[in-house]
Amino acid sequence: MNTLSAKQYIQYSRTMLLNDIGEAGQLAIINSQVAIIGLGGLGQLVVQYLAAAGVKQFILLDHDVVALDNLPRQLLYNEADIGQYKVTAAKRTLRRLYSDIYFDAIPEMLTETSISELSDELSKDVLIFDCTDNFASRHVINQHCVTQGLTLISAAISAYHGQLFCIDFGAKITHEKQHGCYRCLYPLDIETNQTCSQQGVLGPAVGVMASMQALIGLQHICNTFTQYGMLLRFDALTLEWHQAKMNRDQQCTLCQQPQLQEYAHGC
C-alpha cells in the first residue's frame, strides 16, 4: 500500500501526529509483517495492539489451548474459547474487529524442525516477537533470528520480574553494537522453574511487558527505535525499571556472524 484511505487518515491520525512517524510511519506499519510466537499473556496483547495500530499481516504460532486459568491475564479470550487453540480463537476474534487483516494461525509446537519448515514465512522483513513461556522455545527462536538476520523482540515475566530486549540481527555490527544474542545472555544450560504456571503472576504485570514489546515493535517499524541491545528489567513489585547494555559472549558459538569475524580479524 502506498497511500492511506480517507478513513485510515482519521483512524490513525493520533499515531501520525507524532512528527517522527507521520504518514510514512503509518504506511510502514500497514505494510509490515509480524510473527508472534506464543499467544499466551504476552502474545495475546501484542497482537491486539499491533492489529489496532494497523499491522495487516500476522503469523501466529502456538500449540496451546485456552484454559480457564488463562482468562485473568489473557483478555483476548473468554470462557467460550476454552479448549480451543489460542491461535484459532485469536484469529476469529480479531477478524471480527479487523476484516482486512491476514492471519496465518499455526497451532503447532515450536521446535527446531517446525521453525525450519516455516523458514520461508519467518524470513527477512518479518518482525519476530518472542512471547513464549520456556527457555527451549526462546533458544530456538533466537537461533532462527540470528541465522536468518531477523529482528527479535523478546519479553518474559515470572512472578514480579519482567525482562525485555530487542536485537536487530540484520544490522551491521560494529564494536559498540556487539550485543550478542539470547544465548550470550542465557547459555543453553540455563535453568529455572520460574514459569508463569509455577510462579504465579499478576495480569497487568504481564500487560506491561507485552505493551513494551508492542511499543518497541511499532518504533522499530517506524525507524524511531534506538535502544537495540538494551536489556530492560521491570520489578512489578517496586515498579522500578533497570537498563543494562547487552554484550556478546566471546564463547557463544551461535552469533559469530561474518561481520563479527571480520571485526575480530581486523583487530
Binding site: 499466551g40 526462546r138 515475566i157 529455572t192 510462579q199
Partner: peptide, 10 residues
Amino acid sequence: INVFSAVAGG
C-alpha cells in the same frame, strides 16, 4: 553488581 534470575514465562 546486579545478579538476577533468568525468567522465561509469558
